[in-house]
């Protein structure tokens, strides 16, 4: 049986990991509810943002500028993907659209491999200084930055949804896309914006974890997948669910790896996904809709 401070250590690591999953799940849930597309390339946005920031930083740019430029670049890639790959196939079935986003994900990963190679890239931690001691467990200062990012993103998203016209349009689209269209809301424009926003959110998440995990061209696949698990776990039509699902998955993974075996860390997420899909496909906080999934 592990000691108390070891358990506490797991708790902090799990929450950090969970914060990242929550961010990715948030972007996925947003895109899914606006467009009906499960974006399998979301993880690739994370990798792209992180790697771009690494390159800019190595080129000698100030850290803050690197962050904003990398987010902008990835947001542009997100928009480009929507215009080039998603929009031309807007009338296709959800299954065709998933296959298209898988194609996007494969292409972006290959592109990242061509540009950045297989070596891991790194960024320095945002603040200097050793880890903080909390009740005998070490908390990385970068973890605090990641929590901060989650809080800011959620607050920003909330303000956008509740306070702006476009936020209202998005909410209308989530409730009923056809009705929203009849009210003069352009779903294709919203879909475009959703991909730009998920590119930006993915990039921000990628840059914030790079000091902890390093950035590689293939980091996106697993992160994107974990984002899905988190989104499904929390309930795919629920923004709050994405956050709860993300933290829950992070904790499950770290405790599973710490208490059972680290080799099966990725399997934990898959088991959770299958279990949720079979037992409660609408997720923990999901609304029960009439439509079967």
């Amino acid at each position: 049986m592990p000691s108390l401070d070891q358990l506490l250590q797991y708790l902090f690591s799990g929450l950090t990991l969970g914060a990242i999953y929550a961010l990715i799940a948030l972007a996925l849930v947003m895109t899914y509810n606006i467009t009906g597309i499960l974006n399998m390339a979301q993880g690739e946005f994370v990798a792209l943002g992180a790697l771009t920031a690494c390159s800019l930083y190595t080129a000698g740019l100030p850290a803050l500028l690197c962050f904003f430029l990398a987010v902008l670049v990835t947001a542009a890639v997100g928009g480009l993907v929507e215009r080039l790959a998603i929009n031309p196939a807007r009338d296709a079935s959800p299954l065709s659209l998933i296959i298209i986003t898988i194609g996007v994900s494969i292409s972006l990963r290959g592109l990242a491999l061509l540009i950045w190679g297989t070596d891991p890239h790194s960024l320095p931690a945002f603040t200097r200084g050793g880890p903080l001691q909390v009740l005998g467990a070490a908390v990385n200062t970068q973890s605090l930055w990641i929590f901060g990012l989650v809080v800011v993103t959620v607050a920003g998203l909330f303000a956008f949804m509740e306070r702006t016209y476009w936020g209202k349009a998005v909410r209308a689209c989530v409730v009923n896309r056809t009705a929203a269209r009849l009210m003069g809301i352009n779903p294709y424009l919203l879909s475009f914006l959703a991909f730009i926003a998920s590119g930006a959110m993915g990039a921000a998440a990628g840059i914030f974890i790079t000091p902890v995990t390093l950035a590689t061209y293939d980091m996106g696949f697993m992160l994107g997948l974990k984002g899905f698990v988190a989104a499904v776990l929390g309930g795919i039509n629920n923004i709050g669910g994405a956050i709860v699902g993300g933290f829950l998955l992070g904790l499950l993974e770290i405790f599973g790896a710490g208490l059972v075996s680290s080799g099966f860390k990725d399997a934990v997420a898959m088991i959770v996904l299958i279990a949720v899909l079979l037992v409660r496909p609408e997720g923990i906080l999901g609304m029960v809709t009439g439509r079967k999934v």
């Binding site: 296709a92 296959i99 194609g103 494969i106 292409s107 290959g110 592109l111």
Partner: peptide
């Protein structure tokens, strides 16, 4: 180096689906 050819598979997949 590596599996760079996946770029083309991705693009072909997208084009065929569209």
């Amino acid at each position: 180096g590596g599996e760079y050819q996946i770029v083309f598979f991705g693009i072909i997949l997208i084009l065929v689906m569209i």
